[in-house]
Design a binder for these strands. Sequence first.
DNA 1: TTAATAGTGTCTATGAGACAGTATCAA
DNA 2: TTGATACTGTCTCATAGACACTATTAA
Lengths: 253, 253
Amino acid sequence: MVTKTTRPSRSRPPAPRRAPAIPMPFTTVDVVIFSVLDDALQVLLVRRPRTGDEPFAGRLALPGGFVDIELDADLAACAQRKLREKTGVASPYLEQLGSWGGAKRDPRGWSATHVYFALVAAQGMKLAKGGNAADVAWFKVDDVLRKRDLAFDHGQIVQAAVERLRSKVEYTSLPAFLLPEPLTLPQLQHIYEVVLGRPVDKSGFRTRMLAARFLEETGLVDGDSNRPAMGYRLISRRAAVTFPRTFSPRDAD
Amino acid sequence: MVTKTTRPSRSRPPAPRRAPAIPMPFTTVDVVIFSVLDDALQVLLVRRPRTGDEPFAGRLALPGGFVDIELDADLAACAQRKLREKTGVASPYLEQLGSWGGAKRDPRGWSATHVYFALVAAQGMKLAKGGNAADVAWFKVDDVLRKRDLAFDHGQIVQAAVERLRSKVEYTSLPAFLLPEPLTLPQLQHIYEVVLGRPVDKSGFRTRMLAARFLEETGLVDGDSNRPAMGYRLISRRAAVTFPRTFSPRDAD
DNA sequence: TTAATAGTGTCTATGAGACAGTATCAA
DNA sequence: TTGATACTGTCTCATAGACACTATTAA
């Protein structure tokens, strides 16, 4: 959040406001963007600029920044804009994670950030780099959580996002949004295994996915393996479906 | 949100701020407070004052208002404060629901609200009334959702809160926070039935609750019935526990 | 033919749902 | 003793998990 690059500099006419004359918190939007790359769950981070007197110069942070009340119709549109600026992705899975606000999280004063949570397929994606934009790159979630040296409270936020993702993966079809279409069931199973960090039984997995009726066949796909697999497309990209039970190995008490 | 009653009027020294000079959205916190009364799920609403030129005068709204960057250390503290002001309840179950923000939700300009979600036991509670405070009262959720004439976008927000509650009730122990302690299993079952809107099997319900290990016995309680029931206390008031499966009648496909 | 991966069949144990039964209180 | 409510036992059936099996491709 609070990167100079996304801060509009042109002057604007003062809007008519009949509201109270008390100081308002700074309002920002940050986006936690996940993908699976190299068999690991990864998160997109930007390096904060070293120029100017901005806080946390040179540290890694979530992509985000101030709400622009001229550009952004609402919070979701603002999140979409920031995601597009960094990744070029137009229609990812996007849901709200929550908001963090307080007196101390930004040294410049009371601030509140609205955090969104995005899942994208990393294949063939071009990240925004150089120029006025800060460097942006993928980082393994496990490394990020271990090093805990992100700007602001973004370490906490990433942790909350990972917990939400891991928890939802147990009982929803969310990981399907981490794959490009058409996707195959073996690919999807692999994503589940990477995010859950444990193997999943093939037969049960297939039954479960097909019973949830969120996939439709698109014909055989010639993958990197020997036998081609059936390709599938998501019936709806709006939301994930919820399974009636959680994934869980039998030893669970 | 944006009620005059919670708006601080005293002057304060301008804080040192090295932040951008672009206009910030108004920032508010609203609280959706649920309870079960008269065998129905109810929500706490306040009537907006008819004085001054505030928007939505005389309409019902969620309790809430501007963040006070002097009083409130963070968003959760702000929500706690607003809850305490209206209900006197000090330590309810409180979780974040989400945030709503946009150019059009408040006629005075771009605004964003951070919404919290509280569950309280309504028994013997005194609501704040009269004086400077707006009238505050319980309303049946079903009526509120049908009439849809709340101030701002609070109708949408209540709807989202009810959906979240009903969905979580299927697989968590959340409803336990709607009862005063010590609670009995028949009482708890009744709450589940009210919120879910359907009967629940007694035997399965008891097995499920006790297997989840979130209750500890406190001795028999002489209720309004003939045979006394075992009283229980929540082992932790921090969070609800998640059941491995959802409640669901057998006919579910 | 073999290796590799895609996909299916089958067995079993768990445990939820349904419901009938027993226990313990007041009147 | 009766009525009312608290609580328990038992039967059945769906299904997740485990794992062995078959199918289809490339080399």
